[in-house]
């Protein structure tokens, strides 16, 4: 089962602990240190080819592989849930290659690798968030050339980004970016927070956790150290605002979490449920009950813990 035996055992070749060789891990850790020292700055790194496809989290996996140790507890989420296909696949990868102790509980995890969400439960000091990043360059859609965007960052030329927001407001009355909403880190670098919903942006502001970002295909690492200012870009008279829903979670009744829409029949029936599956389960275990929990249970869409 474990893929990381040392060579010599059975004389068969094998992989190093956490797949990457130690030299590579050191290289990544050096990049991470630089990233922490310059919050929001994209540090180029020698991204390795991984046994998982580019775009499927190879940046986050390399960051996690570089920092994980036997004492860690790893939580992996995709779209907020622990049991989505890619989260399962990445968790299995670390179970195989690093004997990782895994958990679904946000407060038990020391490392949380994520794609597209920040957990609802507040993060704590000592925890590390590892974000999988498809496109680290927040200016890329405005300026396709890397040579130019690096200059724009170097000299903090961010007017064009503001023009984009202006255009949104002029056309739609508001900024229409709903995920990967650009932020200003430590008052200096404009940064892509990865495709988390803008709902999660405020959770980054002065978070006690260390936040690391890995973009494998684009070969960039960046970071937000604990207690750092992370401000979503906006206008003074059009302040940043987050999504809201008209109803609470159908299963746990939470009114303050990010909701996913589940289509439950072909008559247009819908249910809104927490995207953070662990958060939802925790609340249900605490006795919170949403309006559709009974229906969902009857339809076998949910295992009703309260009944069992």
């Amino acid at each position: 089962m474990n893929a990381h035996q040392s060579v010599g055992e059975n004389n068969k070749p094998a992989y190093n602990y956490a797949y990457l060789d130690e030299q590579t891990k050191r290289m990544i850790r050096r990049a991470l240190l630089k990233a922490v020292a310059i919050p929001g700055y994209q540090v180029p790194f020698g991204s390795r080819e991984m046994p998982l496809a580019r775009g499927w989290g190879t940046g986050g996996i390399q960051v996690t592989a570089a920092i994980i140790g036997p004492d860690d507890r790893l939580k992996v989420i995709d779209q907020g849930a622990d049991d989505t296909t890619n989260a399962v696949s990445i968790r299995r990868f670390f179970e195989r290659t690093a004997d990782a102790r895994t958990t679904e509980a946000t407060d038990e995890a020391t490392i949380i690798q994520t794609r597209h969400r920040i957990p609802e439960a507040p993060l704590k000091s000592g925890q590390i968030m590892v974000y999988q990043v498809p496109q680290p360059e927040p200016l890329r859609k405005l300026e396709p050339h890397e040579a130019e965007t690096r200059k724009m960052h170097a000299w903090a030329e961010y007017g064009l980004m503001q023009v984009k927001l202006y255009e949104n407001i002029a056309r739609f009355g508001e900024v229409t970016t709903t995920y990967d909403y650009p932020v200003m880190v430590n008052g200096r670098y404009v940064m892509a927070p990865s495709p988390i919903p803008k709902f999660d942006n405020p959770k980054m502001q002065r978070s006690p956790a260390l936040q690391l970002f890995g973009a494998g295909r684009e070969k960039r690492i960046y970071a937000v150290p604990p207690h750092t200012s992370v401000r979503s870009l906006d206008f003074e008279d059009h302040p940043f605002r987050i999504q809201s829903w008209e109803q609470p979670c159908g299963l746990c009744g939470a009114a303050d979490s990010y909701l996913d829409e589940v289509v439950i029949d072909d008559q247009g029936g819908r249910m809104f449920v927490c995207s953070d599956s662990h958060h939802c389960e925790t609340r249900r275990a605490e006795g919170h009950r949403g309006a559709m929990l009974a229906d969902a249970s009857a339809l076998h869409l949910v295992e009703d813990e309260a009944k069992s």
Binding site: A53, R54, G55, W56, T58, D78, Q79, G80, T84, T85, N86, R115, H116, R117, P134, T178, Y179, D180, P195, I196, P197, K198, F199, R217, Q243, Y258, L259, D260, E261, S275
Partner: peptide, 17 residues
């Protein structure tokens, strides 16, 4: 190929937004 095919991964959080 990795990046094109990653579009098969769930994106429903972004899509919900």
């Amino acid at each position: 190929a990795g990046f094109v095919e990653h579009l098969k991964l769930p994106h429903y959080v972004d899509f919900q937004g």
